[in-house]
Amino acid sequence: MADTPNGNAAGGPGETVAQGENPQQFAIQKVYLKDCSVETPGAPDVFTQAWKPEARVELNTRRTTLGEGLHEVVLTVTVTATAEEKPSYLCEVHQAGIFTVNGFEDNATDQLLGAYCPGVLFPYAREAISDLTGKAGFPPMTLSPVNFDALYARQRQQDAAGASESEAGAETTNQGSDSTG
């Protein structure tokens, strides 16, 4: 590696190692709160009762290509708390980030965008959920850690199983079409 004018060796994140090579590059460009909301349909009655809620947490991710090697990943976390089968609050956070991903094979890029990036965003979303629920007058909701690698692997398995079923269904349909024609 060659030294750069600031004394650092070239080849770190975001730097080109040598002309003509395709170095792997991953960088977090920006982390931001894209959207958030909290609704308290049970207020003010919910505050006059013993607080023993049941909470349901939903996680979703979405990604968009913004340009060559530039991607937006949005992690949506929705927490629904109910007490005595009545909604106490609904809190939703869309935590987003812009990431540079270059020089990786397609599978590695998919893994980074589908598992690693949501893992980077989750602590920010968790803090926003805690802040919003606390400001809504409830005990702050602290979400448990999430293994996004395992969720990503499970989603890939479900996608593969769905593709296999679709192909089998298409073959059955095609066979039925052939027999009637």
Rank of each mutant, 00 (worst) to 15 (best):
C36W: 11
N147W: 11
G11P: 04
E15T: 13
Q111P: 00
G14C: 01
A163W: 02
G103H: 04
N60P: 05
K52P: 02
A153G: 05
Q111N: 10
T172G: 00
V93G: 03
Q24P: 00
E167K: 13
E105Y: 10
G20K: 04
L70Y: 06
G169H: 09
E21F: 09
N107Y: 06
Q175P: 01
R63F: 03
Q24R: 15
F47W: 06
F148C: 07
G42T: 07
A2H: 08
L112H: 06
A27N: 12
N107F: 10
A18R: 12
N107A: 14
D159K: 13
Q157N: 13
E105I: 09
A163P: 03
T61P: 07
V46H: 08
A161C: 08
P53G: 04
I28Q: 02
A2C: 04
S37E: 05
V74E: 02
G181A: 14
S37A: 05
F26P: 02
I98N: 01
G42K: 06
E58I: 10
V101D: 00
E15K: 06
Y152K: 04
S144F: 10
T40Q: 11
R62T: 12
D45M: 11
V146P: 08
L121N: 00
S144G: 01
E85W: 09
A108Y: 00
C91Q: 09
A18K: 10
E21T: 15
N102E: 15
F148D: 04
V46F: 05
L59T: 05
L70M: 14
D110L: 03
P145F: 04
T48C: 00
T78M: 08
